[in-house]
Computed example of a mutant assay.
Amino acid sequence: MYVIYYSIFLRWATDFNILRNLYDLGVLVDLMKLQIVSGDTGLEMHFTKASRQRATYSSPRNPNKLVLVSLCGKVVRDKIVEAVRKASVYSVLADETVDISGKDQLSIGVRFCDKQRIVHEKFLGYTKLSAMDSKTIAGAINSFLKEKDHDYSKCVGQGYDFCFTMAGKVNGVQGILRNISTKALFFIVHAIDSI
């Protein structure tokens, strides 16, 4: 959870094909060792017992690594969604992109204030796009937010780039979603780096 929350990459030394020394096992293993040294007897017992059974789930070659990362990601995302639910208002942020395999996708994030009036901007996830037109993109955002059970009556902003597909007042994404949430004003976002 710590590594995901603070955006620390889960890399093992072998992932980089570098072995600086025999003790360099990567961020995740180092954090687990730190946790054990700090007195986490449950984790220490797991590694002591599991290492005899050869099932610690800490190997870079472990196929369960992606499952563990996905589960941790879900926990973090659920905490963000819960924080957004507690906020009085929020804005949706989105940017269309193409992944490494050439498939269209949409990155979706939220911006909200907590009870201490601290502004948070958080990445929620990616969703695949079947097309790059405004109806498809607006439908993807709508479906994504409904899936996460966001209350549209609290949505007061939309942040996208200024391309016509996103920014069009009538047929653009902002126009379509404004029909769903009339309070959701459109703001131009030049770069959504932090989500």
Rank of each mutant, 00 (worst) to 15 (best):
C72K: 07
R117C: 12
K122E: 14
K154W: 03
L31C: 10
I180G: 09
Q105H: 07
A55H: 12
G175V: 03
F16D: 05
D95Y: 05
L129F: 02
I137H: 02
I108L: 13
V29G: 03
D15A: 00
F123L: 14
I118Q: 15
L28A: 15
I80V: 15
H190K: 14
F16I: 00
L43W: 00
I108F: 03
L71T: 13
K103T: 07
G73E: 04
Y152G: 08
D149T: 09
L71A: 14
R11Q: 07
L68N: 15
Q116F: 00
F186L: 14
K115S: 12
T182H: 07
C113I: 06
C113E: 13
D78C: 11
L124V: 08
S38H: 05
R85K: 14
R85F: 00
F186C: 10
G157I: 03
D15I: 00
K86G: 06
S134P: 04
L177N: 06
L68V: 11
K122M: 09
S130Y: 02
D104P: 08
K154A: 03
A140S: 15
Q116G: 08
H150C: 11
V98P: 01
C155F: 01
E82M: 11
K154L: 05
V170A: 08
E121N: 12
V27I: 10
G139R: 05
I192L: 13
I176A: 07
G125E: 09
N171E: 04
L66Q: 15
A50E: 12
D78M: 13
F112W: 02
L129P: 07
A191D: 08
